[in-house]
């Protein structure tokens, strides 16, 4: 077991580090999100392997999404996703009303424009997890009022 503070601070440093190197012109701005997302992807792949080691086989796509919302989210962020919606055609919206990586920021509108930086890693986390369970997807995030946020998962049919 490690301490939560360590992970939160590491994540903050990762975000600020990536954006700092963008300011110095080492990488283009648009690459920052991709970079964070890719790191999340690798972590998601690794985590899901460990978490699903002893679980029963999943019935279907929805079953997998439920696993992500409940077990996966609880282990990573210590709470479940508050709301899961789907159009049954490959789009899932996961809503977290108190997202752990945003709770330390001001809850107002002041830093809204910076919120997306802090969600990129998690988008990758979801995508990586799903990818190792055999689901190819695109994950995007949106925030309208902090610390609540929504992750939209678009399943890519093969």
């Amino acid at each position: 077991m490690a301490d939560e503070a360590l992970f939160l601070l590491l994540h903050n440093e990762m975000v600020s580090g990536v954006y700092k190197s963008a300011e110095q012109g080492e990488v283009e701005n648009g690459r920052c999100i991709t970079k964070l997302e890719n790191m999340g992807f690798r972590v998601g792949q690794g985590l899901i392997e460990r978490f699903t080691k002893d679980t029963a086989r999943f019935k279907d796509e929805l079953d997998i999404m439920k696993f992500i919302c409940k077990d996966f989210w609880t282990t990573v962020f210590k709470k479940q996703i508050d709301n899961l919606r789907t159009n049954h055609q490959g789009i899932y919206v996961l809503q977290d009303n108190k997202f752990r990586l945003l709770t330390q920021m001001s809850a107002g509108k002041q830093y809204l424009e910076h919120a997306s930086k802090y969600l990129a890693f998690t988008c990758g986390l979801i995508r990586g997890g799903l990818s190792n369970l055999g689901i190819k997807s695109i994950v995007t995030a949106e925030v309208s009022s902090m610390p609540a946020c929504k992750f939209q998962v678009m399943i890519q049919k093969l």
Partner: peptide, 14 residues
């Protein structure tokens, strides 16, 4: 305040 250690270790690795 405890989290899964793997999360931190894997994040650091990435």
């Amino acid at each position: 305040r405890k989290i899964n250690k793997d999360l931190f270790v894997l994040t650091y690795g990435a």
